[in-house]
């Protein structure tokens, strides 16, 4: 199906709010090369065919989360999507739904970031001093790490909100991204912030708006599984409400092993201190 002479048709949604009445699809033809991603195709268009095309991208390796787009009816990272995996020579590329479009494929993530901020995405402890000016370190077992690690891979690409049917009609819904992150912190054994976060998540536009369509987990390019996080968060909220939270043990703070002297590590040969030391010692190799 895909050979080097193959021409891939990119139907890209164009929309300039200053000039256009509404969005329209524009067709571009990009020659297929082995390993061509959707983002490569868009760069080809921008460089060779139409410099006015606007899209957002940065790292090209599914780390930054900038190039989320609606590709052939599903949200994908353009850099993480091979043309071959779409199994079609005609691509329809639109901006992510459930956001506002700024231009062409660029959408406004302000609501996403505001919701993320609303759930207090940081470790909350009753004794704040230890967080601001740490003197000791928290003990956490590998099993405790596993309980939230998966959710900490979120890079705020916003694909989950584009996939979510609830976010399609309720723009105040916190959404899988924010709620997944709320669970990431609530599940952290160092964190004691559920009581504080409950105010932000336990309402009609919070966890209870999720009805487990599961599209967020399917769309997530990092395997974060926000749907699982939201359901586990619901369980935490319910257990807390009925007073059955089994008194989760908070990670203990222990002094760092500073009793022993710091092991002396010799500076590598190319560093300034060692060079100086060698000159001082009368090393005349040079």
């Amino acid at each position: 199906m895909f050979t080097e002479e193959q021409i891939i048709t990119f139907k890209v949604q164009r929309f300039d709010p200053e000039r256009d009445q509404g969005p329209y699809l524009k067709e571009y033809h990009v020659p297929y090369t082995q390993g061509l991603t959707v983002l490569d195709g868009l760069y080809y268009i921008k460089e060779k065919l139409d410099g006015s095309l606007a899209f957002r991208a940065s790292c090209r390796m599914a780390v930054c989360g900038s190039c989320g787009m609606f590709i052939n009816g599903k949200p994908h990272l353009a850099c993480h999507t091979q043309i071959t995996e779409l199994e079609s020579t005609v691509l329809e590329i639109r901006p992510l739904p459930n956001y506002s479009v700024i231009k062409d494929l660029v959408c406004d993530f302000t609501p996403l970031f505001a919701k993320h901020k609303a759930i207090k995405p940081y470790i909350i402890r009753r004794e704040a001093g230890e967080i601001d000016n740490p003197t000791r370190e928290f003990l956490q077992s590998p099993a405790e790490l596993e309980s939230y690690l998966q959710f900490s891979y979120c890079m705020k690409c916003g694909l989950c909100l584009a996939a979510c049917p609830t976010a399609a009609t309720d723009r105040n819904f916190l959404g899988p991204q924010a709620l997944g992150q709320a669970y990431r912190y609530c599940a952290d054994s160092r964190d004691d912030g559920l009581a504080e976060r409950v105010k932000e998540i336990d309402h009609a536009h919070g966890v209870w708006r999720c009805h487990l369509a599961g599209a967020c987990s399917e769309a997530c390019p990092k395997g974060v599984d926000p749907a699982l996080g939201i359901q586990l968060l619901k369980r935490q909220v319910v257990l807390r409400a009925v007073g059955l939270g089994k008194g989760r043990k908070l990670a203990a703070v222990v002094p760092p092993p500073s009793g022993q002297a710091k092991p002396r590590v010799e500076a590598p040969p190319f560093t300034v201190p060692r060079a100086k030391a060698e000159i001082a010692a009368g090393d005349s190799r040079s």
Binding site: N98, V101, P165, T169
Partner: peptide, 20 residues
């Protein structure tokens, strides 16, 4: 900006997502 919320269409048209 142009709002791009799918609305009820977003519920009905589940596209290539899973059965859930």
């Amino acid at each position: 900006k142009r709002e791009n919320y799918l609305g009820i269409k977003g519920w009905v048209r589940a596209g290539r997502y899973g059965l859930e």
